[in-house]
């Protein structure tokens, strides 16, 4: 059976990728963010999974608005890095894991999650920036194959936080029932608070973010009780994408151990954060 060994929550702001691609990580405006990644990266380098599941959303790069799926999964063996309008990021294309993708699809549909299947998909910064946060220097290839799971967070009505958490719980069961022994890392991406448009553009809410960061570790059910209105009001119209962290969290055990977290304002217009959770029961003393 496959096992989730860790969960990594991280913002996927494009400028984080751009700062890395352009060698600006030591600049004054970025150094604290990247220094904050270091302990997570060091731990992750020691805990390499066989496959990673990345929960993310597309931003007008791989999917157009004529088709807007609430939840989708890629089943390909290869995902091209999208050209978002300024050339492809200088990072490797993404290798897929179709066998795991199809197993997850079948399990999730059988549990009543109405996934859309992408057999072809270009992946944008929503997926590649989290891979870069994890692995700054991938060389020729990312550390392992990836299964992309997409969530509609852009067009109302987004799935509820409770539905995202339920999807994560079903995902955890689906992973556990995969017949092969695989170590799995799960990435929940996006957030934290931010708003790009409107008179409230530039909105950041560190109190809400702190509450969310604490609760996602210790009391995720609390976050499932919040409505769309709560998320948009407290986290901003784009901060609602934090519901994707709940998919990751749902796939993990009730008790997880935080390895490291870091919070930084601003990455572009966003409160950027990283939080890494160990999913294996603490070793008995």
């Amino acid at each position: 059976m496959a096992e989730v060994i860790w969960g990594l929550a991280t913002s996927h702001v494009p400028s984080i990728g751009a700062a890395m691609d352009r060698g600006k990580t030591e600049d004054a405006s970025w150094k604290d963010l990247f220094d904050g990644y270091a302990p997570a990266r060091a731990w992750l380098a020691e805990h390499r999974p066989d496959v990673a599941i990345v929960i993310y959303n597309d931003h007008a790069n791989g999917i157009d608005l004529d088709v807007v799926p609430t939840f989708a999964i890629g089943t390909s063996d290869h995902y091209d890095v999208a050209d978002e309008g300024f050339g492809k990021r200088p990072v490797p294309d993404v290798v897929g894991h179709p066998e795991l993708s199809l197993h997850l699809l079948e399990s999730l549909v059988d549990e009543g999650f109405d996934l859309t299947v992408f057999q072809e998909l270009d992946v944008d910064h929503g997926l590649t920036v989290p891979l870069s946060v994890w692995t700054p220097d991938p060389g020729e290839a990312w550390p392992c194959p990836v299964v992309p799971i997409l969530v509609n967070v852009i067009q109302y009505p987004q799935p509820t936080a409770a539905r995202c958490y339920a999807l994560g719980q079903a995902l955890g069961r689906a992973i556990a029932s995969f017949p092969q022994d695989l170590k799995v890392g799960v990435l929940g991406t996006g957030g934290m608070s931010h708003q790009l448009a409107g008179a409230r553009a530039g909105f950041i809410n560190p109190e809400f973010d702190a509450m969310f960061m604490e609760a996602v570790e210790t009391d995720p059910e609390r976050l499932t009780a919040l409505s769309r209105q709560d998320y948009v009001r407290e986290a901003g119209s784009e901060g609602i994408e934090m519901i994707m962290w709940l998919v990751m969290r749902g796939a993990m055990r009730a008790e997880v151990t935080k390895v490291h977290s870091h919070y930084f304002v601003p990455a572009s217009n966003t409160a950027a954060a990283v939080a890494l959770f160990d999913n294996r029961a603490p070793a008995t003393a």
Binding site: E106, V109, D110, E111, G112, F113, A166, Q169, A170, R173
Partner: peptide, 15 residues
């Protein structure tokens, strides 16, 4: 493990 969805627990599986 709870029953997560009405219309889910029955009827799945391979063909």
């Amino acid at each position: 493990m709870s029953s997560p969805t009405a219309g889910a627990p029955t009827g799945g599986g391979r063909v």
